[in-house]
Structure formats: C-alpha cells, structure tokens
C-alpha cells in the first residue's frame, strides 16, 4: 500500500519535472522565434511538411466523422420531429469540439510522431552535435522551424477538417435522408456565431502549440538509441492525446 502511494507520488513528481523542462524548452523556442522571422522559408517548408503529411488522413476522417454525425443526429432528432436543426447541431459540435480535438489527435499520430522520430534519429546519428560543432544552434535551425510549422499548420488543418466534415453531414443529411436543404443551411447559418468559430480556431491553435511542443521536445531530447527513438515517438502520441483532451475540457469550461 505504502509502496503504491510512493509510486504514485514518484510518477506525479516525474511528470511535473518533465512538464517544467518542457516549459523551459518552450521558453527557449519562443526566445528564438523572432530570429525565425528572418528565415521564413524554413518555417514555410515545415508547414508544408506537417500539413501535407496529415492532410489526406484529416480529410478522410473529416468526411466519415461528418457522415456518422449526420446519421446519429438524424436518428436522434427525427424522434422529436426536429430534423431541420441537424445542420445547426452538427456544425456547432464540429466547430467547437470534434473538429479541433480530432484534428489534434490525428495530427499527433501522423505529423507529431514523424517529427519526434525524425529529431530523435538526428540526435542518435550525431547530426545535432555536428550542427553545434558548425556553430549552428540546432534548437533554432531544426527544432524551432518544425515547432512553428506545426503551430501554424494546426488551425489550417482544423478548418479543413471542419469544412470536409460539414460536407459529410450534408451528404448524408440532405442527399440521403432528404432534409430540406433550405432549412438545413439557414438553420446552420443562424445558429453558428462568430464566437463559435473563434472557439474552434483558438482550440486548434492551443492544441497545435501543445502537440508540436511535445513532439519537438520528445524528439530533441530522445535517448540516442533505437529504443530511445521508439519511446520518444510513443510518448509523443500518448502525451499529446492526453494533453489535448485535458486542455479541451479546460478551454471549453472557460469559453462556455
């Protein structure tokens, strides 16, 4: 019993220490950010990398999530004879919750893990040390553009996810179960406000910062072994997912 409590306390302390180191890493990244503005091509390249990597799976998943949401919503709403608000309900759920959260989870699994293993491999093969020896700070040259690329790509990906998902909703709602398209779209337009869209974008940005930071931190500090890279990749996905869900709760509670 005592041992178990000790373990829990110990792992809580470890998590806290990791969190602290991650925040210090974030501080160093942010301190170097102004310099990155001078070399926008590096960042643009990484936006393209992170975005292109995840685009296809985000579009596919968006479509299916939208379609399933429409089926579920129709089933529910037709019982109370208010199918007309399907568009509005689905759009709100997607913009405020499903869009940012699912995009972040997919981003962590696809782009985040790739980022972590890439950086881990660079660490293991002395590439980061070689840069230091060439008087190039790998934090600025390698970690920072990848971090910023992820941060900027996430809101874009979130918007794409939401748009495709709404297309999926109307595919099922209007084309298949024949909800009147006029009321479908007008209900949606009157229900969704600018604030809802902001909420979605803010969440997308915050999740983007969290997921990119975790991926870059884990990869950059990976143990220089095959196992170390594997562990960094796994931790990236797990920690990013958990962080996304917890942050989502906090942000939702604040913005309600």
């Amino acid at each position: 019993m005592n041992g178990m409590i000790g373990d829990i306390v110990g792992s809580a302390r470890d998590s806290l220490a990791t969190f602290g180191r991650m925040m210090m890493f974030l501080g160093r990244l942010l301190a170097a950010t102004p310099a990155a503005v001078l070399r926008p091509r590096l960042v643009v390249h990484q936006i393209y990398n992170a975005g292109a990597l995840s685009l296809l799976i985000i579009m596919t998943c968006g479509l299916f999530v939208g379609m399933v949401l429409a089926l579920l919503g129709y089933d529910l709403l037709s019982r109370v004879a208010s199918e007309d608000i399907l568009g509005a309900g689905a759009a709100l759920a997607l913009t405020k919750q499903l869009g940012p959260v699912l995009t972040a989870l997919l981003f962590a699994g696809r782009a985040g893990s790739a980022l972590a293993s890439e950086l881990g491999l660079m660490r293991a093969t002395d590439q980061l040390a070689a840069m230091e020896m060439m008087a190039v700070d790998p934090l600025r040259r390698v970690a920072l553009p990848r971090f910023l690329g992820g941060v900027l790509a996430m809101p874009l990906l979130t918007a794409i996810f939401i748009a495709i998902a709404i297309f999926g909703v109307q595919l099922v709602g209007v084309q298949q179960v024949k909800i009147d398209p006029g009321s479908f779209w007008s209900q949606m337009r009157s229900a969704v406000e600018l604030a809802d869209i902001y909420e979605g974008l803010i969440k997308g940005t915050v999740f983007g910062i969290a997921c990119s930071l975790i991926a870059v931190y884990e990869g950059y500090n990976a143990a220089p072994t095959a196992e170390g890279i594997g562990r960094a990749t796994t931790r990236t996905v797990v920690v990013s997912s958990v962080a996304t869900l917890i942050l989502n709760f906090i942000l939702t509670a604040f913005m309600l």
């Binding site: 491999l121 660079m122 093969t125 002395d126 590439q127 070689a130 840069m131 020896m133």
Partner: peptide, 9 residues
Amino acid sequence: LFQNGALLT
C-alpha cells in the same frame, strides 16, 4: 570530423 561522419541526412 566526427567518427561516423554525422552528415545531415
């Protein structure tokens, strides 16, 4: 010169 070269892949 690193023992393993350490080229940027």
